[in-house]
Amino acid sequence: MTVLLALALGYTGLTCLALGMKRHHQELLGRKPTEARLRLFKAIGWLLLLATTAACLMLWPLGLALSMVPILVTLVGLPLIFLLPYRPALARHLAWALPLVAGGLAVGGLG
């Protein structure tokens, strides 16, 4: 089930990266961001993508893990792109809910 956690972290990471961009930030949160906030979100986004990589490394041997990271990120990124315009609120809530659920599953014995 760690794969779900990896996917969830990737999703949240990408959402944070989107929040680190001015236009998407306004779209998602409805207010003008400060430069500092944008930088903060970008940093969190990249950190979460690092966490995705770490989760992949737990799942697979090194070479395969590194190859799977971009594939995982792609697979969660595509739904995100289509959620942003249609269901921005859902996109935002998934960003905190998914890692919690996936983390719970991973800890709760299914991993």
Partner: peptide
């Protein structure tokens, strides 16, 4: 060429994309 079914599924979805 990997045994892991999860990898196969993720590739399948990538192929769809």
């Amino acid at each position: 060429r990997f045994a892991d079914p999860v990898v196969r599924l993720l590739f399948f979805f990538s192929g769809l994309a």
